[in-house]
Design a protein around this nucleic acid. Structure first.
Length: 202
DNA sequence: GAGTAGATCGGCT
DNA sequence: GCCGATCTACTCG
């Protein structure tokens, strides 16, 4: 009903989209099971200049081609051979920008999440961390390049987050990116217990 | 509670 | 062959 239009993602400032996604509701309807959760943590990836991005220097492969598509679709890829990481493609065609969704706060379909996780009780780490969140929502690489206004994956308005509640800090697990690893491209909602990791001091 | 190994696919040196 | 935008389980103290 209140699904974000594709135009929301076609913004030339990825960090702006990353911040605006906080407090939105990510919903999936996969294999007949509906689940949703509020986005509490994101990271921006801004290729071609961003070394931490798969599309650094406009590198183009079969895997990352989704990022070169227009904004408003999903870029999902396999990490460490096990984890399916879910990204939102932003900007226009041939501008490979993306926002990695790192954590959500479960809202609906908790029983489906527990079933997928083979757990009986809800705990904070179930949807916290990109790989964990994808398995909780049933997201796999089969959904790569799915439109975010489709009825499989969609994002709705949910809660307005005040700028004062948004914390920005360096991204996680991208030390190899040298100077770019220090960019404050990670955003999360302050004092939200579902956030995967607090500020990392180095 | 903290530290480490193991899982396991695709893209690259 | 090696290593990654990771997570979990298992060990050790």
């Amino acid at each position: 009903m209140d699904v974000l239009p594709v135009s929301f993602y076609q913004n030339s400032d990825v960090t702006d989209v990353a911040k605006k996604l906080l407090g939105k509701k990510l919903c999936t309807y996969i294999n007949g099971k509906y689940t949703s959760g509020m986005i509490v943590e994101t990271e921006a990836y801004m290729a071609p200049q961003d070394k931490a991005s798969h599309a650094y220097n406009n590198k183009y492969t079969e895997r990352n081609k989704a990022m070169y598509n227009h904004g408003g679709i999903a870029y999902i890829y396999l990490c460490y051979g096990i984890h399916h990481l879910f990204n939102v493609v932003t900007n226009i065609e041939n501008k490979p920008h993306a926002v990695l969704i790192r954590a959500i706060e479960p809202i609906e379909g908790i029983e489906n999440i527990l079933y997928r996780k083979n757990k009986s009780t809800l705990s904070v780490n179930l949807c916290s961390g990109p790989g964990s969140l994808s398995s909780a929502l049933g997201i796999t690489t089969a959904l790569n390049e799915t439109r975010l206004d489709s009825n499989t994956i969609f994002i709705e308005h949910y809660k307005n987050i005040d700028v004062n509640e948004i914390v920005s800090c360096p991204r996680i697990g991208v030390d190899y990116a040298g100077e770019h690893a220090k960019w404050n491209f990670r955003f999360y909602i302050e004092n939200n217990k579902w956030v995967s990791k607090k500020v990392i001091i180095k």
